[in-house]
Simulated scan of single mutants.
Amino acid sequence: MSPENILLRLPDAEEQAVRDIYADLAARGFPQQHQRPHISVTFAPTMHRRAIARATDLLPPLLPVALRRSGVAVFGTKSKQTVAWLLEAPEALERAARAVSVANPDGRGERWIPHLTMGLRLPKAVVPDYIAALQEVTSPHFKEITAQRAAFYQPGLGTELEL
Rank of each mutant, 00 (worst) to 15 (best):
residue 88 E to Q: 13
residue 68 R to M: 11
residue 95 R to L: 11
residue 56 T to Y: 00
residue 56 T to A: 11
residue 72 V to G: 05
residue 94 E to I: 02
residue 55 A to H: 01
residue 94 E to C: 02
residue 68 R to T: 12
residue 57 D to K: 03
residue 78 K to M: 05
residue 84 A to W: 10
residue 99 A to T: 05
residue 85 W to M: 01
residue 77 T to I: 05
residue 92 A to V: 04
residue 57 D to L: 11
residue 93 L to W: 00
residue 89 A to K: 12
residue 92 A to E: 15
residue 67 L to F: 02
residue 98 R to L: 01
residue 79 S to P: 03
residue 89 A to E: 04
residue 60 P to M: 08
residue 72 V to P: 09
residue 75 F to K: 11
residue 96 A to H: 05
residue 68 R to S: 13
residue 87 L to Q: 06
residue 95 R to C: 07
residue 97 A to Y: 02
residue 89 A to N: 06
residue 55 A to T: 03
residue 77 T to P: 03
residue 82 T to N: 14
residue 79 S to I: 05
residue 81 Q to L: 02
residue 93 L to S: 00
residue 93 L to Y: 01
residue 90 P to I: 09
residue 75 F to V: 05
residue 100 V to Q: 14
residue 82 T to L: 06
residue 82 T to Y: 11
residue 74 V to W: 12
residue 86 L to C: 07
residue 67 L to E: 02
residue 96 A to S: 04
residue 81 Q to I: 02
residue 65 V to R: 15
residue 87 L to Y: 02
residue 82 T to Q: 11
residue 61 P to Q: 11
residue 80 K to C: 13
residue 51 A to Y: 08
residue 63 L to A: 10
residue 72 V to C: 08
residue 61 P to K: 14
residue 71 G to R: 04
residue 63 L to T: 11
residue 91 E to M: 06
residue 54 R to C: 01
residue 49 R to D: 07
residue 50 R to M: 13
residue 54 R to E: 02
residue 67 L to S: 06
residue 81 Q to C: 04
residue 51 A to I: 07
residue 64 P to W: 06
residue 77 T to G: 15
residue 87 L to C: 06
residue 72 V to M: 13
residue 89 A to T: 10
residue 48 H to Q: 07
residue 62 L to T: 11
residue 88 E to W: 01
residue 92 A to F: 02
residue 55 A to P: 04
residue 67 L to Y: 04
residue 82 T to D: 15
residue 90 P to E: 12
residue 80 K to N: 14
residue 89 A to C: 06
residue 86 L to N: 12
residue 93 L to K: 05
residue 79 S to C: 07
